[in-house]
Write a protein that binds this DNA or RNA. Sequence first.
DNA 1: CTAACGTACAACCAAATGGTTGTAGAAAGC
DNA 2: GCTTTCTACAACCATTTGGTTGTACGTTAG
Lengths: 116, 116
Amino acid sequence: MVVESALLSDKHIDRLFHALADATRRDIVARLLEREQSVSTLAAHYSMSFAAVQKHVAVLEKASLVGKVKRGREQIVHADPATLRRATRLLTAWEGVWAERVARMDEILAEPPTDH
Amino acid sequence: MVVESALLSDKHIDRLFHALADATRRDIVARLLEREQSVSTLAAHYSMSFAAVQKHVAVLEKASLVGKVKRGREQIVHADPATLRRATRLLTAWEGVWAERVARMDEILAEPPTDH
DNA sequence: CTAACGTACAACCAAATGGTTGTAGAAAGC
DNA sequence: GCTTTCTACAACCATTTGGTTGTACGTTAG
């Protein structure tokens, strides 16, 4: 059974989960889900250098979790909920695999014993 | 708003998503959701060395996505769907943040204009 | 027009990662 | 009891990652 979304390649899923495997990047995503903001506004929340935050944003961009649009001298970063939804769907599909397995076992257990 | 599950520390969530940021490890998880199996049975599916697969299993274990139980000389690996569910809940909660934001904007747009 | 602000990226560094090979021990099968 | 199977892990290596500093360019404000 193919569970992984046909819309995402393995490489893309790699990037997606890798992007979420860091507390700073998760925090960035959480903030952007609340509201879009510029890179430097985001950077102000973290004790690391601006360049470090930029790198995190770049990782999130490559994972399609966020996007950027230029407004004057600022780059405004926004979340991409569609990508988030795809990630959720992938995990939900996996839960489905498990649920099916449990259901099969329940059926087997519910059957009356037969002669061997 | 604190979205991340109170049941998981940041470090644990790091490990969880990092564990899923590799195609081989996702495949291992998918196979184990179907059925538990030994490390060497798992290893037979991949063209890398046994030690490499062992390392992947160790990463999944640290992330609590799988567990191992010794049966004779074999270590039987099984999936831990509870951890999977926690990961799904985290992403679902994030979708909720986005949905709330969209709902707020819809409210604002639905309000009749008022005098300034 | 200039200073300040905001951003991009190169180069660097230490640590982590993913894979290999080799060694060793436990358990099963003959 | 010995061979085979299964597993664990150390040591190694190349690559990637996460952070820093420094330089440079575009845009805004005065």
